[in-house]
Amino acid sequence: MDFFLQLLVGGLSVGFLYGLSAMGFVMIFKSSSILNFAHGELLAIGAYFFLALATWAKLPIPFAFLLALGGCFVLGLLVERIFLRPLIGEPLIFVIMLTVGLAAMFKGLILLIWGGNLYTYPEFLPKILEIRWGLIRIPPVYGAALIIGALFLLLFGLFFKFSSQGIYMRSVADNQRAALSLGVNVKRVFALSWAIAALVAGMSGIVLGIINGVNVHNLSAIGLKVFPVVILGGLDSIGGAIIGGIIIGLLETFTGGYISPSLRDVVPYIVLVLILLIKPYGLFGLKEIERV
């Protein structure tokens, strides 16, 4: 029973992190229908920014955290401006392949700078966040992740629902031509969605780095695991991404715990194929309102 509870808690927390990582991905898809294969690399870049600022430049932790997020935001803007804007109007396959190319580029770059070693952040989280309950012990970082994640989710929920810029972003996702006719600055919306997505990705990358250590191979593998998560949740639903993440996380830990540790990493993809065959648009994906 304890083993079960241990797995349950572990699965929930891992899954929540998956969901968090998937949020940025969904944001890009929502605003510009681009599948971002470089998402794992964005996670990694966030984690390495923080690493560089916190351990090498020895900045105070909160400051380093904010600065790393700012760096990710700017990086998102740059990526959109340099690589994606020239492709507006081109067939989708080029855009997708471009993100594949970007992924290889970023990964190579990170490996060239930092190499493939595992780095760890200094210990900085307060011990109050640690939860002990019988045999189960949840390390403080999960508590921190939960708080940060919930905060971001709330912020973005409010942003998209109520702020004008959020509504403009949704309008572009919905009907680009009509948005253009009303004077919505579509280019700014695209840039902003990449910037926000990179920011969210960087944030999840940092949290993942605190838990597992920073390693570009691990982080980019998690970037690919985003796909089963978002397919499960529906490509365009941010709440769905969190739930999909939790389901995948639970699935992984339970397969790892009860069946075989080696099956653990494939199970999400097997589930993915099954879902695609049974319910192609995910559990929470928007049904297309089709009017003729």
Partner: peptide, 11 residues
């Protein structure tokens, strides 16, 4: 990594 980087760049 260099190979990977150049690949990505070429694409």
């Amino acid at each position: 990594p260099l190979r990977e980087f150049v690949f990505g760049l070429a694409i």
